[in-house]
Design a protein around this nucleic acid. Structure first.
Lengths: 188, 188
DNA sequence: GTCACGATGTCAGTGACTGTCATGCGGCTA
DNA sequence: TAGCCGCATGACAGTCACTGACATCGTGAC
């Protein structure tokens, strides 16, 4: 055992989510988060670039997962089908963490600065997915457009999922939304 | 003539853009922006909610313009055709302000916090466009999906336009990107 | 002429974030 | 076993974004 309690980063993440949910993002100081985690403010900023980032540590893992899904889709799959594979994986991942995902989303949705951070994470995800599509031989701008369309589907399906605890599961909402997008963009 | 020089807000906007371009966003303090505009830091924050917002004052006007375009599209137009009308209007607007738009975009693209703000403005625009589509009788989630797809087209066309000063004009890139999106989402 | 109004200035305060140096446990090496 | 080093954390001072409260003073209504 080390000199300190283990998992400082995890303690900070949990303390931050609790406090943001209890009092709101603005009414929580970094010093309070650190104190609840048994650490100091300075240590918080060694683990997270800013007060928002503490809620977004998982986004990198999600990005890797989805990039792998796109890269691993059958060679014969069309670009949007590769994206659909990734959306399925994402839906499964969130469905496994229903409680946490919904609690975290409520906090993020309640504050504009946190929504901003969420949007730039999604933009980064779109860029990575576009890269994965290019790796499959898809040209620009088709790769970026397919990736952005996939993120649009993700956003809308996720929003509906988070807002209706008794509705369909997320993978299903993803598939329905993708079908809806195909319908609405069809035709000249 | 008033007690003060006129157009304080405009002076602040111009001073900010100049300084962000000259030294970078981080290396510019609000006090410096205000001093160059002949005002004080406190006055800056009376006009703009924060240091980033000074670059995004125009986004509200853009939003109104595009909402009107969607609302004013022919009754017979399909959802994506109404969106296409709005994209055409947007393309024209930026094309009229080529120089300014490109200079401003270079500043925004250079700093993650500014890109975040841009993304939330685009998300707000998407929400307004979805509202305009609902006003035309389009149901959810089709309205939101069409709006988000339109924003995806806008983002990618704008990026190509900003990155290639000698390329096609923006309305043309918008139309090409929309056609690409239709092609990539087509098929089951 | 008076008076309310509105845009700005002044000043003090909070809190996010950073740079720098100190501390002490665990492991490595002689 | 002794000395040393790396690494996670603490302590502390400093900058700057942003806010609240109050003062100032041309302008226009009456």
């Amino acid at each position: 055992m080390g000199r300190w309690e283990p998992d400082a980063r995890g303690r900070l993440e949990r303390s931050a989510l609790e406090l943001y949910a209890e009092r709101g993002f603005d009414q929580t100081t970094v010093a309070e988060i650190a104190r609840r985690a048994g650490l100091t403010e300075r240590t918080f900023f060694r683990h997270f670039a800013d007060k928002r980032e503490v809620l977004f540590h998982g986004s990198h893992a999600l990005e890797e997962l989805l990039v792998d899904a796109v890269a691993g889709a059958p060679d014969t799959a069309a670009p949007m089908d590769a994206i659909a594979t990734a959306l399925d994986v994402a839906g499964g991942m969130f469905e496994e963490r229903r409680e946490f995902a919904r609690r975290r989303n409520a906090v993020v949705a309640a504050h504009a600065e946190l929504r901003e951070r969420e949007l730039i994470k999604l933009a980064s995800l779109a860029a990575s997915l576009a890269g994965a599509l290019r790796g499959r031989g898809v040209a620009e701008p088709a790769a970026s457009l397919a990736a952005e369309a996939g993120i649009a589907v993700f956003k809308i399906a996720f929003e509906r999922w988070a807002g209706d605890a008794d509705g369909p599961d997320l993978p299903r909402l993803m598939r329905e939304s993708l079908d809806e997008l195909r319908a609405v963009t069809a035709g000249a």
